Simulated scan of single mutants.
Amino acid sequence: MSKLRAAREVMHECFESNECVETGRDLVDDVIFSRVSKLKRLNFKGFYTVVLEENDDLVSVATMRVCDNRVAEMPLVATTFRHCRRGMCRVLVDELDKNQMKLGVEKLVLPSLPTTVETWTNNFGFCRMTDRAKLLQYTSLDFQGTIICQKLLR
């Protein structure tokens, strides 16, 4: 099985299927496979899927896209249930942070479920983004009912 298909399975283990009304396609699939659309808000070109493996076993997955040279978004992050509570998401996010800093990215943003905001803020160095208007200049992926969190990379 390809890495992208395995990453898709991890995401579907952790997130409910979210079918796009306009296309009838699964949003997770569109992001993971970086599908292109003529509609700007449905264009997922430029997304990368990053995986963390342990002994050829896919452990944790994240999707990310650099919006410009300064801002990157990470809308989907998941760890398989059998590897939860082992710090694997921490390893993945730390590596992503290091690589984003090397590329000159200054800020990482992510949409968080209200139930996970505390985890992102207390354990991963994110804070709630108080001014969402700053993101309007970018086409970023957001979900209803989420709270946008940001992390300054230094």
Rank of each mutant, 00 (worst) to 15 (best):
K3T: 12
L4F: 11
L4M: 11
L4I: 07
L4H: 04
L4P: 07
R5K: 15
R5V: 08
R5L: 14
A6F: 01
A6C: 05
A6E: 15
A7T: 02
A7F: 05
A7E: 06
R8C: 06
R8A: 09
E9W: 08
E9N: 09
V10P: 01
V10D: 10
M11K: 06
M11L: 15
H12T: 03
H12G: 00
E13V: 09
E13F: 12
E13M: 11
C14L: 13
C14V: 15
C14F: 07
C14D: 07
C14R: 11
F15R: 07
F15E: 02
F15V: 06
F15P: 01
F15C: 04
E16I: 00
E16T: 07
E16G: 10
S17G: 04
S17V: 13
N18Q: 14
N18E: 14
E19L: 13
E19A: 08
E19W: 07
E19H: 09
C20G: 07
C20P: 04
C20S: 14
C20E: 12
V21L: 15
V21T: 14
V21G: 13
T23Y: 11
T23I: 07
T23K: 14
G24W: 11
G24A: 12
G24Q: 10
R25A: 10
R25T: 12
R25G: 07
R25P: 01
R25V: 05
D26A: 01
D26H: 01
D26L: 01
L27H: 11
L27G: 05
V28F: 12
V28Q: 10
V28K: 09
V28N: 11
D29N: 07
D29Q: 05
D30K: 02
D30A: 11
D30M: 13
V31H: 01
V31A: 03
V31F: 06
V31K: 02
I32T: 06
I32P: 02
I32E: 02
I32Q: 03
I32V: 15
F33D: 10
F33M: 06
F33P: 02
S34E: 12
S34K: 05
S34N: 13
S34Q: 12
S34T: 06
S34V: 00
S34M: 02
R35Y: 03
R35E: 04
R35N: 05
R35L: 09
R35I: 09
R35M: 08
R35S: 05
V36Y: 11
V36E: 14
V36L: 03
V36C: 06
S37A: 04
K38F: 10
K38I: 11
L39H: 03
L39K: 02
L39D: 01
L39M: 03
L39Q: 01
L39C: 04
L39I: 08
K40Q: 13
K40G: 06
K40E: 15
K40S: 14
R41W: 05
R41T: 06
R41G: 02
R41L: 05
R41P: 00
R41Q: 09
R41C: 04
L42M: 07
L42V: 02
L42K: 13
L42G: 03
F44D: 01
K45V: 01
K45G: 08
G46R: 07
G46N: 11
G46V: 02
G46D: 10
F47H: 04
F47Q: 00
F47A: 04
Y48G: 00
Y48W: 12
Y48S: 12
Y48E: 15
Y48P: 00
